[in-house]
Design a protein around this nucleic acid. Structure first.
Length: 589
RNA sequence: CGGGAUGUAGCGCAACUUGGUAGCGCACCUGUUUUGGGUACAGGGGGUUGCAGGUUCAAAUCCUGUCAUCCCGACCA
């Protein structure tokens, strides 16, 4: 049966909802796909539900093709499994917690690694049972500090999460690849633009991880890519240490009074005015030493100093990824009070000719260097005395470091780490993420099976997610114009939108007839059979709702003509009433 | 959590400065009209003005508190 607009539970809005900032949110609400129920929580109306169901259907088909079996866990779970892996605490305020009448703790699951692992442990105990891939499409809950952008970052959202279980690393690599391939097929079928980028495994632990990002200016993730094919989330880019340079002719270090030069800019000006070198100094000739506080998960605070070229800033996200699981904060006044030797604005690796920064040096503070700092390179940097800087300080000769910290911001034009060209930066929305988790969860929950020698071995796992409801928003965001949505054929709430325009009987009869014919041909139909609604309103609603093909039964019907309208291109052609469905089928992708 | 803004009909807004008991547009209902681009006209229903106190003869309006929502940032498998 067609969906009849005369009785469909739908009310389109002529005005924009005031709380919708991003276009996808605005249009999905205006066109009657979703309604906000609470911050970051949405109700799905019939049209929205159909789009969501179409996405889910494609995912199910491809999961099945990849050999994954569907299961369904509760969203409401007891805390115990999450305590076993430490995530009950780790998640902090980000999970919804609740208690039953006996005061037992529960949570609304933010993700399901634990219970999947436990279920496999319950049922399987032999290598013969593996490999296994299982998945579900489920609501997830996260108490986001700030939900935003409608469906893009909600507190309740639908996710497809799959998990693979293997005995060997090779098996895991294969399972991972199968999911990764499925993801490519899914996103291609959905018609969503995406890039696969190397990702930071982060809090999930594990070794290999890739993200599927849909490029969008409103994306929350920043990634880099090169013409030569390098692509990574900025958090996951790591640069090799710059090769040594010949420092044998470096002049000896010399300390100058440098009054009132607490910033890089003032220091560069001072150097060029008072101690000009062979060429003008730039910020890149200075070594900036940033004091960071690393806060471990159990709350312990440790200072670390990172030296990087003065023209670079620390990228907070890269720093968090690099130092994880520690949180990274700028050192505060209390930290400086504990280390009175640190002179703000004049910090450097060396004091009075002796190594000052470093675990085993005078200060006892760990000292790390940006990978761009090459052995043999010379720097202008702080002398650890108020209003004094040291020039010609040569790395390897005059000072050393405890290691590398690759946490500097990445700039457009920086060379890709694999030598594949200059990097460009772009923003994207994370629509999928694949992880090789390894044995972290299996170990924590003791998921072991007997191998062919009768020995217990720990299972290795992968975890694979797709943001289903987020995809609705991503697709809406990417497929629209000023008048409304324009769905890709694969997800549209209907295959064709048939409009009866006019007050006479004929257009309505023609629309009914075309509707049956379309359904016989296997097409789903949205039929605008509303009486006493002017054509203008019907056209405007059709544009807003965004079914990619529209057939208008109007004046021409008496001459046996209807109009076939391609919503995306705007093209409208007259076709015969009798052949309209054939014409449509021929033109559909 | 820091900064900013806003809470008045289903939605979008006005009235608040200068207190006098709530209005406009859309949507909805009735009638007439119109029917290829959100027709026109007439009539109508719908509100504890976020909540709680206070000031006052009188509070949407002034004061205090509180809650909520949105935006920017922080945070974010």
């Amino acid at each position: 049966m067609p969906i009849r607009l005369s009785s469909l539970f739908l009310r389109t809005l002529r005005e924009d909802p005031s709380d919708a900032e991003v276009e996808s949110h605005r249009l999905l609400v205006r066109a009657g796909y979703i309604r906000r129920a609470a911050p970051g929580v949405f109700t799905w109306l019939p049209l929205g539900l159909r789009v969501k169901a179409n996405i889910e259907r494609i995912i199910r088909e491809e999961m099945e093709r990849a050999g994954a079996q569907e299961v369904f866990f509760p969203a409401l779970l007891p805390k115990e499994p999450y305590e076993a892996t430490g995530r009950w605490e780790e998640y902090g305020d980000n999970i919804f917690r609740l208690q039953d009448r006996k005061k037992a703790d529960y949570l609304l699951a933010p993700t399901h690694e634990e219970v999947f692992t436990l279920l496999v442990k319950d049922l399987y105990s032999s290598y013969k049972d593996l490999p296994l891939s299982i998945y579900q499409i489920q609501n997830k809950y996260r108490d986001e500090a700030r939900p935003r952008a409608g469906l893009l970052r909600g507190r309740e959202f639908v996710m497809k999460d799959a998990y693979s279980f293997d005995v060997t690393d090779e098996g895991l690599a294969k399972s991972y690849q199968a999911q990764r391939d499925a993801y490519e097929r899914i996103f291609q079928r959905l018609g969503v633009d995406y890039v696969v980028v190397k990702a930071d495994a982060g809090a999930m632990g594990g070794s290999k991880s890739e993200e599927f990002l849909s490029p969008s200016p409103i994306g929350e993730d920043t990634f880099v890519r090169s013409a030569g094919g390098f692509a990574a989330n900025v958090e996951a880019v790591s640069f090799a240490v710059a090769p040594d340079v010949d420092g044998s002719k470096n002049p000896a270090p010399v300390i100058f009074d440098s009054p009132n030069t607490p910033t890089i800019a003032t220091l560069v000006d001072f150097a060029n005015q008072n101690h000009p070198g062979a060429r003008p100094y730039t910020a890149a000739d200075t070594l900036k030493n940033v004091v960071l506080a690393l806060v471990s998960p159990d709350g312990k605070r440790e200072l670390v100093v990172v030296g990087l070229p003065g023209d670079r800033e620390v990228d907070q996200k890269r720093a968090e990824a690099f130092f994880g699981p520690h949180d990274v904060e700028a050192a505060n006044d209390a930290d400086f009070a504990k280390y009175p030797q640190l002179v703000k604005g004049y910090i450097g690796p060396v004091r009075a000719g002796k190594q000052f920064l470093g675990k085993d040096a005078e200060s006892g503070i760990r000292y790390l260097l940006d990978p761009r700092v090459a052995k043999g390179s010379m720097w202008i940097t702080g002398a650890n005395e108020d209003q004094k800087h040291v020039f010609n300080l040569s790395y390897g000769r005059d000072f050393s470091a405890d290691g590398v910290a690759d946490i500097a911001e990445i700039r457009a034009g920086d060379p890709a780490p694999d030598g594949s060209g200059a990097l460009e930066l772009a923003r994207g929305i994370e629509i999928g993420h694949v992880f090789q988790l390894g044995r972290k969860y299996a170990e924590a929950l003791d998921l072991r099976v007997l191998d062919e020698n009768g020995k217990l071995v720990t299972v290795t796992m992968g975890s694979y997610g797709i943001g289903v409801t987020r995809l609705v928003a991503v697709l809406a965001e990417a497929n629209r114009d000023d008048a409304g949505l324009i769905w890709p054929e694969a997800v549209s709430p209907a295959d064709v939108h048939i409009i009866a325009a006019g007050k006479d009987e004929e257009p309505f009869q023609a629309a009914e007839a075309l509707s049956s014919k379309a359904e016989t041909a296997g097409l789903s139909v949205l039929l605008d059979d509303r009486q006493k609604v002017s054509p203008g309103v019907k056209f405007a609603d059709a544009e807003l709702i965004g079914v990619p093909w529209v057939i208008i039964c109007g004046r021409g019907v008496s001459e046996g003509q209807v109009e076939l309208w391609n919503r995306r291109s705007g093209e409208r052609v007259q076709v015969g009433l009798e052949s309209a469905i054939e014409e449509l089928l021929a033109r559909r992708a």
